[in-house]
Amino acid sequence: MAIQIQNVRFTYPDAPTKCVLDIPEWSLSKEEKIFIHGPSGGGKSTFLNLLSGMLFTHEGSIDVFGHPLHKMNNRQRDQFRADHIGYVFQQFNLIPYLDAVDNIKLAAHFHKDGEKVDVSHYATELLTSLNIPADNWSKPVSKLSIGQQQRVAIARALINKPELLIADEPTSSLDKRNCEDFMAVLFDLIEAHKITLILVSHDLSISNYFNRIEALSDLNLVAKGDDQCS
């Protein structure tokens, strides 16, 4: 199993009585690609943040590739995220004043072997397979088009050879052509590297890439009207 969740409940510390997430059971197999959709405010970000270890709950258990996130401390979860998870957002995926190569190297820096391995070769390999022209590699990424920025973001997310890629509305700021390009290169790469994918979006038009499609409301009991964390 790639991910196994049992009896997870989550409340934000500033609103301890309002339950945001209540998932009795949920799992994902290795190399599976899942499309999750749902309205904004439905706990999507909370769900993804729990999987990546950005958020933490005492209630229930979250195992990601055999790592029990609910048993780790803050430092271990930061390191876990750097080593095992790639993350792509809708925007602000890159440090704007660094160039593409430096952005990728920065991500590699936090991997547990980041200081030892020379990632330049792999970085250029990724950028090439993502169709980023070589003369754009050393420009500040803020000078790149949105489509190119999102593809550089894939390279940044994959540099540490993660087992799991989480994409949070990755195509929402792209036009139709760029969106198709993005999905095409994304699927090429994750299939080539045998990566498990969770993609969250409200844009159902890209769901045809997936064979498992779920609404967040199907796994989160809170969305079904039960928002009391007892």
Binding site: N74, R75, D78, Y87, F89, F92, I95, A107, F110
Partner: peptide, 16 residues
């Protein structure tokens, strides 16, 4: 703030 969030997501600990 975006920069801080991004660094956190790619695994930067707060002390970084």
């Amino acid at each position: 703030s975006h920069e801080i969030h991004l660094l956190r997501v790619i695994g930067a600990p707060p002390r970084f």
